[in-house]
Nucleic acid binder design. Structure first.
Lengths: 329, 329
DNA sequence: CTAGGCAATGTTTACGTAAACATCCACTGG
DNA sequence: CCAGTGGATGTTTACGTAAACATTGCCTAG
């Protein structure tokens, strides 16, 4: 910086003003400084900046291995949104989703150049008792529950599930079966609860719940069972991949979709439009989740806010060919 | 740090020594310092550290949107491996794969607290003429070509393709059809080239090349065409998703896999073991690619190395039920 | 018993930046 | 013509750390 200042014939403070875009510099001077910067290949030292300013302009993202497409899309949106706010994103991978690993990530956090943290993780791994956050580091949690303890941004799981069930009921089906996600997942739990509540709220009797583990394979196995249920004319699968397996099982058992059985998925993964038949599903706006995480954490930093709350991102029903009006038999 | 020093009754330099694990501190003193650190909740300021040491202990990763599973797994391995070396990972997302966007990412890089960069990107977006790297920042490129201009780590695409073709020839098939990836992809290009070379090297006549775009849907469309080729008894698909579509098409057309047609994929995505039938495929070791990227960039930093080269990560043939010895007709 | 040596610890300093304060100068209004 | 004003620029300082050098005190060999 001193070299630039000397070459431009100004003081280092003026260089600083130019490099930060501050006012109070003549257009002439600014041009000279910029020219000197270019000539010397000057780039500001961000360590010194961070030291002086007391902030790093960096967000940490803790996520349990980039396992699901949803988390990845959220991460991507966080990175993009952070960049727009002039923030960088540092990744804190958690190899396996155990309490120890999560605690380890949080303690590494303490040594990291990070102003705030976004956690993409189911909340039950964030047992508050064992996790100690560096003071002054704000947290926002995505993909989770427990808005009372943390600020949470998440897809409106319940609303999406409700829309899926209502869509099927509106098509004339007597009831809707549910192919749920694994018990350990809060998202699966909330979707299943909303399915149940919507059915009973409409005076229907919920059929027994069928459980998978999010995988297409588990959807296939469940589908083989559902195909043998003669009363089953409408299924709401808790994600698109299980819906894919379900479609395959129904096809193999000679039950046509949507003529005999209507199927709704959840997520709207890119492939779902190419399923056979194309899948009616609940679109999740991961990009919006990521964006809101960044906005949320930045606003918390500015206000030094203490209060928590949950922001729900609405879903959208995407109607494709896998659902149809129930046929008289 | 001064507070810790005072509480522990030592000088700040001793605190520094303890916090960096340096020798020359009595066990007694060390314990006292550690106790003081805990009591005051001391966290070393990484900005000051970076300023003093002249390095950030951070790697930047530039990647075109986290689009493919392979890139994501590589990124994950990079993050894990970097953490083991005491390095953090900062993400530089590139929204769309245009020259401008890539240039933009590289220029943002100049202001970022990063010691080196790993680029996960096809090389043709890295036209050297328009990209200027900050001096002293080393680069390693994954998923790419052109080891003459950059240090490159990549899966041994050619070797994998060769193994796939040889496996099918060893099973008695006269020749092997190829369902290739899009023309713009170097990976697709190299797989197709190796397929062609292996066939001609064995004195076989390569059938016309069929092209997809990596998607299951494109594999399905290609599969409908291939199903009508009576001579087609063996297909090597350039990725597992296209193989999935291919399997569906063959099934619909009544051509049994593996009795009538053998199919080999590429990637070994988790789902491929659950395909119908489970898919024989070429396993890519993305974790190894990521690990080698980190090792490579760190060693270049230490040696200030200038020479480039390509490191190939071997693939592995995973035999499952989608391939079988050719039947006499 | 003492010089020499070495391990443990303390003191000084510089890393590059930006905030706070100081200075300079041109212009305005009385 | 001069005091006052405000914009442009310069000077000083501190941010938290670790390298380099300085000091202390104890132990050992002669």
């Amino acid at each position: 910086m001193a070299d630039v200042a000397q070459l431009a014939g100004v003081s280092s403070q003026t260089v600083s003003r130019v490099s930060n875009g501050f006012p109070g510099v003549t257009e002439d001077t600014r041009r000279q400084v910029l020219a000197a910067m270019r000539e010397l290949g000057y780039r500001p030292n961000s360590a010194a900046r961070a030291l002086r300013r007391g902030e790093f302009r960096t967000l940490g993202v803790i996520t349990f291995s980039l396992s699901t497409m949803g988390n990845i899309r959220t991460l991507e949106a966080i990175a993009t949104s952070a960049a727009q706010h002039g923030y960088a994103v540092t990744l804190l991978p958690v190899a396996v989703p155990t309490q120890d690993e999560v605690n380890g990530a949080f303690s590494r956090l303490g040594e990291l150049a990070v102003d705030a943290v976004i956690v993409i993780m189911e909340i039950h791994l964030l047992d508050a008792a064992t996790v100690s956050l560096p003071p002054g580091v704000q947290v926002v949690v995505a993909d989770s529950d427990a808005g009372d303890r943390y600020t949470v941004v998440d897809t409106d799981q319940a609303g999406g599930a409700r829309d899926a069930v209502r869509h099927l009921l509106d098509l004339g089906h007597d009831t809707v079966w549910h192919l749920a996600g694994p018990e350990g997942s809060f998202a699966a739990q909330r979707r299943a609860n909303a399915w149940h509540a919507t059915l009973t709220g409409s005076g229907r009797t919920p059929p027994p719940l069928v459980r998978g583990d999010w995988s297409a394979e588990s959807g296939y196995r469940a589908g083989l069972r559902l195909a043998d249920e003669p009363d089953c004319t409408a299924v709401f699968a808790a994600n698109d991949q299980m819906a894919l397996g379900l479609l395959r099982a129904l096809h193999e058992r000679g039950r046509r979709v949507p003529e005999d059985v209507s199927v709704v998925g959840f997520d709207d993964i890119p492939e779902s439009a190419s399923f056979l038949p194309p899948l009616t599903t609940i679109h999740q706006d991961f990009a919006e989740v990521g964006r809101l995480c960044v906005e949320g954490v930045l606003s918390k930093m500015r206000q030094d806010g203490e209060e928590h709350g949950t922001t729900l991102v609405p879903t959208r029903l995407v109607r494709r060919a896998s659902t149809a009006r129930r046929r008289a038999r």
